[in-house]
Design a binder for these strands. Structure first.
Length: 301
DNA sequence: CAATAATACTGATGCGTTGG
DNA sequence: CCAACGCATCAGTATTATTG
């Protein structure tokens, strides 16, 4: 992109002068002489080819163009100041912002975060749960955990955890008129879906079950809601091993039969190429990988 | 007179080119 | 690749002009 930018010190001088409506006060603010401000403003006006101020006797007025240019200049300078401040604060401040999708945050990351806090009490982790891909250039996010196939451009992405997919349900469903004991029994139960609508179809296909309609049953926008519904005995959910691990250990969910499907995609740790070795980011990454290891789901490239 | 902007001028720094 | 040169730009001071 080719930009046509005015001399930036001149813009800065103009903005201060316009705000104060005085070259002298602007000079005080910027710690230069009044003449320097006069110079700068003049040069900006010359560069633009139009007057920004009307000089009155002992008074300064903005022209109409100056008025609207002030709004633009002020906005740009504010944003530049803010962005610069953030950039400089980023490493000093002990805050680490991690973006990940809601289900993973709620069922896997947050329950384990206490251990990170214990190991790194100086780093405050901020979890930003949202399901859209983060743009590190636009948002104030240090790193992210994403699910997918990898190969994203312009970022460092390390595959660290895989998963398997299998049905889970409340232990209540193991009893009753149609106890869930084998995949064939699914036809007597309600299937619960998340937005990955293909999952049940794939699983049933892999399990060789053809008399269960993979499209029926309620659908939820997040896996954590699906799991909640399953815990309440509303039906059978397809569980992703990292997300249901804890619930199974606690006994709120059970895996009624052994057959599992290995997921096609994996979990990735993602951060900007340039900041991969920054201490707090590396610390979080190492901890994350160790947690996956602990769960026995760590994979290494 | 006091406050203000404009003008003239100056020294320092930055930047692109050039030649070894 | 690097040092040297020269020009352009920048930021400043001193001074002048204007005006209530």
């Amino acid at each position: 992109m080719s930009r046509r930018l005015p001399p930036l010190t001149a813009v800065r001088a103009f903005e201060a002068a316009a705000r104060h409506l005085s070259f002298t006060r602007a000079a005080d603010e910027l710690h230069v002489t009044q003449a320097a401000i006069s110079h700068q403003v003049k040069s900006l006006e010359t560069w633009l080819g139009l007057p920004l101020f009307r000089r009155g006797s002992r008074a300064l007025f903005l022209t109409e163009e100056g008025q609207s240019y002030l709004a633009v200049a002020r906005d740009c300078l504010d944003r530049l100041a803010e962005g610069t401040g953030r950039l400089l604060m980023r490493d000093r401040a002990g805050r680490l912002t991690v973006s990940t999708f809601q289900s993973f945050a709620a069922t896997w990351l947050v329950p384990r975060l206490g251990r990170f806090r214990a190991a790194h009490p100086d780093i405050d982790v901020w979890v930003a749960a949202n399901d859209k891909i983060v743009d590190f250039n636009q948002e104030d996010v240090d790193c992210a955990i994403r699910y997918g196939a990898g190969g994203w451009p312009g970022v460092k992405a390390v595959r660290f955890m895989t998963e398997s997919v299998f049905p889970v349900c409340s232990p209540k469903l193991l009893e009753g008129a149609h106890p869930l004991r084998a995949p064939q029994d699914l036809k007597h139960h309600t299937l619960l879906h998340d937005h990955m609508n293909e999952d049940w179809r794939m699983w049933l296909l892999a399990a060789g079950i053809d008399d269960v309609d993979p499209t029926r049953g309620p659908s939820f926008s997040h896996s954590s809601m699906v799991l909640q519904a399953a815990m309440n005995g509303q039906g059978v959910a397809l569980g992703r091993s990292p997300l249901v691990r804890d619930a199974i250990a606690e006994g709120t969910l059970v895996q009624p039969f052994k057959f599992t499907l290995n997921a096609y995609h994996s979990y990735f740790f993602v951060c900007p190429e340039a900041s991969a070795e920054r201490p707090k980011i590396a610390a979080f990454r190492d901890w994350l990988f160790a947690e996956a290891e602990r769960d026995g789901m760590r994979i290494k490239e």
